[in-house]
Design a protein around this nucleic acid. Sequence first.
DNA 1: CTCCATGGTTACCTCAAGGTGCCTAGTTGA
DNA 2: TCAACTAGGCACCTTGAGGTAACCATGGAG
Lengths: 126, 126
Amino acid sequence: MRPISKEEYDLKCATRQLLELMSEKWVPGLIYTLSLGPQRPGALTRRLEGISKKMLTQTLRNLEDWGVVHRTVFEVVPPHVEYALTPLGEKMVEPIALIHGWAQENRENIAMVFTQRLASKQSAKP
Amino acid sequence: MRPISKEEYDLKCATRQLLELMSEKWVPGLIYTLSLGPQRPGALTRRLEGISKKMLTQTLRNLEDWGVVHRTVFEVVPPHVEYALTPLGEKMVEPIALIHGWAQENRENIAMVFTQRLASKQSAKP
DNA sequence: CTCCATGGTTACCTCAAGGTGCCTAGTTGA
DNA sequence: TCAACTAGGCACCTTGAGGTAACCATGGAG
């Protein structure tokens, strides 16, 4: 059992990098929504109830950096912007769908755990 | 495009619950290591360089709550404890392996993004 | 002339994840 | 007698993710 060095685990591990991206709060919702077709920011905001402008922009910029999302600006007024998945982004839909599938299969386990945690948290602070 | 409600996205979505678990810092390493066979805490600590006792225990308890890991105590002295994946846990190895596969295929993209981000962070705070 | 919608940016605040360090308790070896 | 190994509990601290609210520039509707 060879040790996994700090550097290897923290920095180089593409798997962890990817998992961290995918678990950013709004990433799965955005990727899934964009997999249905290109969208304008307004539409995305309306679809993902509760997302703030800041988080929408920030998350989309992040996904752009990853080369997962492409931003198209139409030079008209009022401004018109569209976001779409890149081919790399399309390739990310499948792994997320697999996670989703796993989660659905085991949704009862997950729900159980979740309600237990909620209960214990609430009983902890009266 | 039906909106996704806050509650739906935050609370009920098993997918996000699962992604959050999987992206906890030490979870992928622990799941992968345990997929090689049951392990004692000491061995896990030695393998995952940089993990603290607290984080090891905390993460393992968390995985126990999820029913992903089983803890066996041998009533001997000095104490002997073993952690192993449950059948549910075994089923989690595959999705993680898929993510891992994706990350490997696209490791160059990921590495590029990562070094860029590092560089921009360092130039931002001199 | 004012209001609203377009797509952002910025400063500020909060909370929890992750980390450090010290404590327990029993047994073995120097 | 003191140190070290076993597995873990607990208090404290720091950092960053996520959220709130205000601001910018433009143009059409009333």
